[in-house]
């Protein structure tokens, strides 16, 4: 690293930001991949229903389909906001 780079590195390097963002988006997209085509729609409808009662973020509902032998497990993970 050169003398001038020492000052440059004060701000966060854009390549690191890119990598972190990619790791998150790719992980999320992989989670729904390979499942039935209705999964994304199911996810958005569940989100709509929950929002009728509680204000939650877009990514508050996580759906994952796991296969264990002959058995398919639909895992639904809903994160509710903290009570204030």
């Amino acid at each position: 690293m050169s003398f001038l780079d020492y000052f440059r590195s004060q701000r966060k390097r854009s390549a690191n930001v890119a990598k972190e963002r990619l790791q998150i988006v790719v992980a999320r997209e992989r989670a729904t991949r390979g499942g039935p085509d209705y999964l994304p729609e199911l996810q958005s409808e569940i989100l709509k229903v929950i929002r009728r009662y509680v204000e939650v973020d877009q990514d508050a509902v996580q759906i994952q389909l796991d296969r264990e032998g002959d058995c398919e497990v639909l895992e639904l993970n809903i994160t509710l906001p903290d009570r204030h």
Binding site: D5, R8, S9, R13, S14, A15, N16, A18, K19, L22, Q23, V26
Partner: peptide
């Protein structure tokens, strides 16, 4: 650009 931290490195892309 990779050395300057402006571009994803080959290791970054391989890892993802």
């Amino acid at each position: 650009r990779v050395q300057k931290g402006e571009m994803l490195s080959v290791e970054d892309v391989k890892e993802i």
